[in-house]
Amino acid sequence: MQGDRVYRINRPRVIFENIEGELILVNMEKGCYFSTDQVGADIWGLIETGHSQSDILEALRFRYEGDAAEMAQVVAAFLKLLEREELVVPDSASQASGARRTAAENRRSPFRAPDLQKYTDMRDMLLLDPVHDVEAAGWPVPKVEESWPSADAES
């Protein structure tokens, strides 16, 4: 059954770190850098601990408030995206462990679909000066060069 699919992190190709709620992931073979938000980081943490798709969904329902059907759809789509980017791979060998219910019902946050930002060429990104060549949001968001006014505009 699709809902019981278990994924595992595509180690050792994929390296990741949680920096104050923001999860950054790098696929070292493809040289791609990804960044995701708190919801994405939560899903990743559940994958890391061997939870099946249905367990992930159950755990998220305890942490977030939202429409159950919509959450199921979003989680399925996010897992497929992670698989397509080769950040996770299906793991038929693993036994799913039970969902973690870490948040009390009355402290749930509103559920938002996780955002997965992708930067495709880490080699180019590492050529950026992380102080001066980036927007205020910080590396790896490159500074958008201000365009010069056109001749028409000047006249």
């Binding site: 920096i19 992380p130 980036v134 910080g138 590396w139």
Partner: peptide
Amino acid sequence: LLRLKGIYRYWWCSNQNLFYNGA
């Protein structure tokens, strides 16, 4: 702080690149 965090991210990625090939 966001710019500083970006500098941290930069070096985390750069170092991981070194470690991956070093491993």
